[in-house]
Amino acid sequence: MRPRRSLTLLVAGCVVAGQVVAEPGYQDYGTPESDQAAPDKAIEIASITTDRGIVTRPGRLTIEPSLSHAYSNSTTVAIEGYTVIPALVVGLINISEIQRDIFVGAFTFKYGFSSRLEASLRIPYLVINEDLRERQAFQGTPVDNLREASGQGLGDVELSTRFQLTDGSGGWPYLLGTFRVKAPTGESPFDVERRQLLDNDGNPIGIVLGERPTGSGFWSFEPGISFIYPSDPAVLFGNFSYVRTMPDDKGEDNGGTIKPGDVVRFGFGMGFAFNERTSFSLGYDHSVIPKTSVEFDTSLTDAAFDRVQVGSLSFGMSQRLTPNASLGLTVSIGVTEQAPNSEIALRLPLSF
């Protein structure tokens, strides 16, 4: 019998310090059945984002309820006027502050069809609360204008598959191909009630949504690849994906055919197993979203905003409760202006 390998290895989202985890009836690539470890020694590495880990074992169903809260706060100063000297501005200064709370409850179902293929379905439900405070200076006594908006409902449902490309033998990392489809099942910004925003003189100055949308309103397809590399005592991981968002004709009232910018996503990090029950991980994720294009009357124009950079630093912990259940907590801190200030997510994967 060969001696057990001494690396800390991530298999099916689980690690054991000093040996590979396998279940009866499941053959780990490159590991003889005589070297299989007892499944009750497995613990879960705390994932920074979803779909980190080897595919679900064949015939196993995992149900993962989760709850997350994201908080965003931003302040915008708009100046309409001209500068007499660098320290003196003549005109209107508009200061607006937005505070947004987004609560997401979701159920994710994962099923392993084979030792290399997994499929999952994620169904989210969103509750959004938003407060907007505006102050117009140089119009007598400054007065704050307060507006509130909220929305709740089903979000965009996601269906994804993952396929394990390599078995991690010969010192190579585990490579996994992923493909995700997001359907516009949530209420989009083009479906909610809208009303005209007027200034003090009754002139239209913009559009206000009556409630916050819970979906994007567009189909999107996301192919990608991820890797997992065991390097005792840590497990290194990373991912790269490209989100293709399909253009859609939203009608003349909404500007015609709208093509949201495609998204480039990448991330990396590492995880540690403290013992057979507790693990910790640290990582960084970044998304680059280019301009949105609007095609109207056979002309193609770009939206006013430039590309958006969304980056966040995350750390998480996981505690195994039973051989088939664990509790994971992830905290993310935004490091770019467009990212949420903070996000907390709680997950409870249950395997059958």
Rank of each mutant, 00 (worst) to 15 (best):
M1S: 12
R4N: 08
A12T: 03
G18V: 05
V21I: 09
Y29W: 06
T31E: 09
P32I: 06
Q36F: 13
K41I: 08
R60H: 13
L67K: 07
S68N: 04
H69T: 09
I79R: 10
I79L: 05
I85H: 09
L88C: 05
L88G: 06
V89L: 11
V90L: 10
G91M: 06
I95S: 13
Q99F: 06
F103R: 06
F107W: 04
F107A: 06
F109M: 08
S114G: 14
S115E: 15
E118H: 06
R122V: 07
R122K: 12
P124C: 08
V127R: 09
N129S: 15
E130W: 02
E134S: 15
Q136T: 13
A137L: 12
F138T: 08
P142R: 11
D144V: 15
N145I: 07
N145V: 11
L154K: 11
S160Q: 14
T166V: 06
G168H: 07
W172C: 02
Y174Q: 07
Y174C: 00
G177D: 11
F179S: 08
R180S: 15
K182N: 11
K182W: 03
K182Q: 12
A183V: 02
A183Q: 00
S188P: 00
F190I: 01
D191W: 04
R195K: 09
N200L: 14
N203E: 15
N203H: 01
P204Y: 14
I205Q: 11
L209G: 13
T214G: 11
G215C: 00
G217M: 04
F221Y: 08
F221S: 01
P223F: 12
P223D: 06
I225W: 00
P230L: 04
P233I: 11
V235A: 14
S241E: 01
S241P: 12
T245I: 15
M246N: 13
G256M: 03
G261V: 00
V263W: 02
R265I: 12
R265L: 07
F272V: 07
A273K: 03
T278E: 02
T278G: 00
S279R: 12
Y284T: 01
Y284K: 02
H286S: 06
H286W: 02
K291Y: 00
V294W: 03
F296A: 14
D297V: 00
S299Y: 08
L300F: 02
L300T: 10
T301C: 01
D306P: 12
V308Y: 00
F315T: 13
Q319C: 02
R320K: 09
N324G: 09
N324P: 02
V331W: 14
G334T: 03
Q338N: 12
N341E: 09
L348Q: 11
F352Q: 03
